[in-house]
């Protein structure tokens, strides 16, 4: 379990770097490092599906974010100074972590999952669906409604991006033609 701790600490360092670095492009690259660490963590946690998906998705999101930061005339955004708000944010973090520390013993202990529902999937999954990959049999057979909802979200997002990114609004173009 040492590798898990190492990967998590690297991810936390990368996250702090992503938020605190001066240059915006370096921040995006640091976020890519966090995603790579997450992908390796999934591999250590025996979730190869998630590792593949996370790696590909992280590449795509880094490309999109770099596209957003590649303006030549990007003005420098001054950092907020050390003020009461920062102290309040840190205080929130401390309180949150304290409450979480009290709640963690109620979670199932690490390494011993409950398997209340999944026990059935593990036993009867192959017989009922015929798929060897149990994750696929869960997302496309037992819980296909999740996947349908995901497809709906993706469709809505595509429509939203196309509507937001249209170069000139329809009304303005009419005005420009006059």
């Amino acid at each position: 379990m040492v590798e898990l701790y190492i990967l998590l600490i690297l991810m936390i360092i990368g996250a702090v770097g992503a938020l605190e670095m001066k240059d915006l492009l370096s921040s995006v690259v640091a976020l890519g490092a966090v995603g790579l660490g997450l992908s390796f963590t999934f591999l250590v946690l025996k979730a190869p599906d998630l590792a593949i998906t996370q790696l590909a998705v992280e590449i795509l999101s880094v490309i999109i974010l770099i596209r957003a930061t590649l303006h030549k005339d990007l003005p420098e955004v001054p950092a907020r100074g050390w003020s009461g708000g920062t102290a309040a944010g840190l205080g929130f973090a401390v309180v949150f972590l304290g409450v979480a520390f009290l709640c963690i013993p109620d979670l199932p202990p690490f390494g011993e999952p409950l398997l209340k529902v999944a026990g059935h999937y593990l036993e009867a999954g192959l017989k009922e669906t015929g798929a060897a990959n149990l994750v696929t049999s869960v997302i496309l057979d037992y819980r296909a409604f999740d996947t349908l909802g995901e497809a709906t979200v993706l469709f809505t997002v595509v429509m939203g991006v196309l509507a937001v990114m249209r170069a000139v609004g329809r009304k303005e173009r009419g005005k420009a033609d006059e």
Binding site: L45, K46, A47, D49, L50, T53, Q54, V57, P113, L114, L115, V117, A118, Y121, L122, G125, L134, V135, V138, I139, R143, D146, T147, G149, E150, V153, L154
Partner: peptide, 16 residues
């Protein structure tokens, strides 16, 4: 085996 249910939920959540 590890629990496949959280993995399936997270697989959807990553793409979303």
């Amino acid at each position: 085996m590890v629990d496949p249910l959280p993995q399936a939920l997270v697989l959807t959540a990553i793409v979303i």
